[in-house]
Design a protein around this nucleic acid. Structure first.
Lengths: 305, 305
DNA sequence: CAAAAAAAATGAGATTGTTTCAAGTTTATC
DNA sequence: GATAAACTTGAAACAATCTCATTTTTTTTG
């Protein structure tokens, strides 16, 4: 019944002091306004302003509406502007999930830098083990997924960030440290520590053990990389981790690490993005920032050969 | 562009979780809503909710609009309800002006009692000497005028409150106190104290002196009744005042008073009301309250004969 | 105070926007 | 993979809002 149009009219009427002026302001004819006001007055069965008076005076009803308009119209305009910026990609939402659980090294600097450039983009970072981020990305529950397993999905693009090698982390004095590289059957007598996800999603199974049909002696899980390192250092298992996630601990000589197989197990880390957001400026800039940060963060690390 | 309709739709959509349910809530077909949303989405060039999901999920743009709606729609509804009450006369504005400057005796009790019954009516009481309240009433600057001079005006009705007699207040030992009543020429040698208004609006001129073509020796003005009484008591003039305004001072024997002419000068005090407000419940009740209070307040007073 | 100018109201027709109906498509469910 | 429910789409009916042309009212000015 009551519409924003009416409130805008009240504002224009009050601020300009006459129908003619208000009509000009609103880019309609004076007749249109006259009709509009008459209709509104009929609907609320009260007049809105005293006609025989210049500048025009509002009635009680008119003032009530004016006050409402003064409250509401600016709010609405603000949201309209925000929607405009949303549509042109000047701002947006960036709900991120990481499938790779040692990404904080380069993701945190990325987010910090990005936040400065895009203070209005709604940033959120989720990392859980028990949900599939890619379907959530399709459903628009998420906007960006960091993953090493790109599944071909409709409307999803994958942007490669960098290649990395999965290394087997071992206690310093372990017998396998004598070998130049690890062979699948070496693990048949070891306890393998993994993140609590299905084995099919782990490089060490997909690209190494499964190919040789070997299973480790035992499997235990841990959610935290630091915890894994401690378990390894105390001889309670071994673990495959990305080279860059190990650098810190290798340099401090807490543990050692060896390639998996003669050529090593290599993967690529991707950013998965929905196509409808791919070209938005705020998304493109995130991708660039992430790539830059990866290069910076990773260039100094020890890459075992 | 954006309209309240759209905001209401967003609310219904969010609260009901589906187009069908929202359509039912809004009493339109689901098709109408579909069109409406599509139009809106085209206009803001962004989608509002993710379709492939039940219950439906809003996008960032959708949420922005939802939050706006949650803010704005209740405000608008509140004002609509208020306008409804205004229209039916359940509430309103009562800006009152008094032309008669000794009315507080009965007006204050009236206002106090009225306020309890109509807490939402916007009460205001103005009393100035230098403006004409009746034109202001016509212009809707005022809603009610207490006056003893009803001018026939279009759209104004006068409700008689009570009749009163104008008495000439005199010092206790004045020579005129020996007379049963005052004659016009008695005043030719007296200083007359009046409220600072044009003489044409005062009973003592209109109904007494002017008829006889007599002018007082001198005229001085005072804005306060109490001040007038003091001037009179100290022998510095005489003054015509309504009987009920004098009661208190006569009883305390500060002054005396005599009728003007053999039959006295009588007037009627009226409430002037614009016709468009006359039948509003809040106005009718004010009129009744005022009449009652007048009867109560005035019944105990000494009416000189 | 009357004439002129400005402002506002009015009515009819044109235009635009909104709704419904009917039929299609997609998505969810068993 | 069939069925039902939810949603989309296009065309036509319907309703609203606007403009144009004109009249009425109010204000200004000579």
């Amino acid at each position: 019944m009551l519409e924003l149009r009416h409130l805008k009219t009240l504002l224009a009427l009050y601020e300009s002091g006459s129908l003619v002026a208000a009509a000009e302001r609103l880019h309609v004819t004076q007749s249109a306004l006259s009709h509009q006001i008459k209709d509104l007055e009929d609907k609320i069965s009260a007049s809105l302003f005293v006609r025989k008076s210049r500048p025009l005076r509002l009635t009680t009803a008119g003032y009530k509406l004016l006050h409402l308009a003064q409250d509401v119209v600016p709010q609405v305009k603000a949201v309209e502007r925000e929607l405009g910026r949303l549509a042109t990609g000047e701002t947006g939402r960036l709900h991120i999930a990481i499938e790779c659980h040692s990404c904080y090294q380069w993701l945190m600097p990325t987010l910090n830098q990005y936040r400065q450039h895009w203070p209005d983009v709604e940033l959120d970072l989720a990392s859980g083990f028990n949900f599939a981020p890619l379907p959530a990305l399709c459903r628009a529950d998420l906007d960006l997924v960091v993953t090493a397993d790109p599944e071909p999905l409709d409307g999803i693009s994958y942007i490669p960030l960098f290649r990395y090698e999965s290394l087997l982390a071992l206690p310093k004095e372990h017998s396998l440290t004598k070998k130049r590289f690890i062979e699948p059957q070496d693990l048949a007598s070891e306890t393998l520590i993994i993140y609590p996800v299905e084995q099919g999603r782990l490089d060490i199974f997909k690209q190494f053990l499964d190919l040789a049909g070997v299973e480790p002696k035992a499997i235990r899980t841990s959610e935290l990389t630091l915890m894994m390192i401690q378990l390894i250092a105390s001889g309670r298992g071994v673990c495959a981790l990305p080279n860059w996630a190990l650098t810190e601990y290798l340099e401090k000589a807490y543990i050692t690490a060896k390639p998996l197989g003669k050529d090593g197990v290599w993967s690529t880390l991707y950013l998965a993005v929905r196509d409808d957001q791919l070209n938005a400026p705020y998304m493109q800039d995130f991708i660039l920032t992430a790539k830059d940060t990866c290069v910076e963060t990773l260039q100094g690390i020890t890459l075992l050969k």
